[in-house]
Design a binder for these strands. Sequence first.
DNA 1: CTTGACCCTCACGCCACGTCAGACCTGATG
DNA 2: CATCAGGTCTGACGTGGCGTGAGGGTCAAG
Lengths: 255, 255
Amino acid sequence: MSVYTVKQMAKLSGVSVRALHHYDAIGLLKPRAVGANGYRYYDRQDLLRLQQILFHRALETPLKDIQAALDQPGFDLAAALRAQRERLVAEAERYARLVDVVDRTLADLEGDVTMDDKKLFEGFDPEKQAGYEAELVERYGEPMAERIAQSKAGMKAWDKTDWASFQQEAAAIEHDMAKALAQGLPVDSGPVTAIMRRHWAWIAKSWNREPTPDAFAGLAHLYQDNPEFTARYEAIAPGLTEYLAEAMRAFAEKR
Amino acid sequence: MSVYTVKQMAKLSGVSVRALHHYDAIGLLKPRAVGANGYRYYDRQDLLRLQQILFHRALETPLKDIQAALDQPGFDLAAALRAQRERLVAEAERYARLVDVVDRTLADLEGDVTMDDKKLFEGFDPEKQAGYEAELVERYGEPMAERIAQSKAGMKAWDKTDWASFQQEAAAIEHDMAKALAQGLPVDSGPVTAIMRRHWAWIAKSWNREPTPDAFAGLAHLYQDNPEFTARYEAIAPGLTEYLAEAMRAFAEKR
DNA sequence: CTTGACCCTCACGCCACGTCAGACCTGATG
DNA sequence: CATCAGGTCTGACGTGGCGTGAGGGTCAAG
């Protein structure tokens, strides 16, 4: 009565026959018996195990780990679930952030603002974002962490117009720096200093607070060390990353 | 000046050299030039294109689609992004639901309630969940949609104790039904009718409203047609799905 | 005995690369 | 000029969780 063929198991559980073959092959779920004809026969215990498998699979646990969880008697399921929970929370947040990115990009598109000014402030690749922050905090201590939090809080309240003007100013600064570089102006010359004043103000706006000279110079390093920034600047003009960084350091020293 | 080797491109953009090879191989990003030695040489335009690629890749767009988006001149980027946005929202919600599932499971585990009573009300596999709802709505019209919404709203307010007792009652009902089946009691016999009264009440609790007899009978079909339910009942006892469904229909007819 | 619905075992395909292996190229140094 | 480090290349296989045939055996009903 309670013996099922592959097809029946598939219908009862919602997985494919191929998946059952696969689970058999990797030893995750072996049928209770195999006939002389090679047919797989499952029973209710197998069905129960399959249900457990599906539970873990829905949480995106690798099949290997599921096997380990189900086969080891003293396995700490609660601990594993708590670990999974963290992962899932992180994923949920990641996707929420990506939605934000798309929203801002769409706002850009519909507002007809130039399309290329979105890379810097998008917040995708949160690991790297976290990396920047960790770097800044390590270099400048706890107060920096607070500043970052302030910055985030402040920027959250911005509307689309704020973002658009913010990005336009960034583009303008970059454009002017590229021109200065092309003209061979020294980084401590008057015009470049003027641009740096605008950059300083722009940073102050994004941080919701005046940067210290040290932090400003540290940002220059950050620009040089991280691909997100170098790619952006190098794409505008070759050598712009270093030129900008030098200009920032020169400006910071005068403060 | 603005000519980059693979490694330089990799450093500037943060992708691996292997990925650049791959993008070349599939035609997504071909270097501006290839030397007589076979070396790939990129320029700033390539870097810009790579940045666009990375933007889309971060949104998990398949590389083929990215290529289509970048190569077709009249491509509707906004429409594509809106579609992606929907996907991302759905994913964010899915993960949030999974976190809920894990939380409830953990509550179960820590409350020492039996572990197997979690499958029915978990809300993972949202597509199928949506399928159930669509099925019910189609069968019973718009009022059912409203009822589902009510049910969800009501259950959201439940705490862990509510969930635990809710699940215990379900388990008790199933257990009693399995016993009745084993004893061969007819589905319209007194004891079975008594169990059905409890099942009815249980449904009423979850729906936040009394079911109509038609809806109750419809639920019986749902149990028989969907693997999530059949697997659950068949795992408890073979034939329980049909027995339960018959009992529900018999009960519904008497109302 | 035939039909049609099952069942089996290979075995390749997918996607976006990671990871060797083996060989060639280039620029700086002894 | 030889050497050496550190690039660069082209295969080619591995990853995970199966999907999707191909080619052939099995089983129950008519």
